[in-house]
Amino acid sequence: MTERILNHKILGAIRHEFVPFKWNGETIYGVEGESLTAALLANGIRTLRTHEKDGKPRGLYCNIGHCSECRVTIGGEKNQRACLTPVKEGMSVKQQTELPHLVKGDDSHV
């Protein structure tokens, strides 16, 4: 479990105003304007998507928009980089999952 750094030895103390938003339909809380990767991590959520092909868990990697590992679906729009997206009250964020196999098919993931 990770946690927020409310008192920093050099940078000092910080106070937050929390707002609710949805992660896979469940209400969790983040700080308005902070990155989604930070808000999810502060809620103990490390797996942001499962890999399109093999379904293995993936999390944030570079956290500044270069690697695209943190792709999530926001308000129905797919492949949004969570690290570049600030938290807004009421936003709906969903984990992306394994894609159906082109030949074998598999509608359990659609």
Binding site: T2, E3, R4, I5, L6, H8, L11, I14, E34, S35, T37, A38, A39, L41, A42, R46, T47, L48, H51, K56, P57, R58, G59, L60, Y61, C62, N63, I64
Partner: peptide, 21 residues
């Protein structure tokens, strides 16, 4: 590729800017 592996820069942004461990 496991969740929890990141660049040092990612850890820096989280720690000093987002203030999340």
């Amino acid at each position: 590729d496991l969740p929890g592996v990141m660049t040092v820069g990612a850890a820096q942004v989280l720690t000093n800017f987002s203030r999340v461990k």
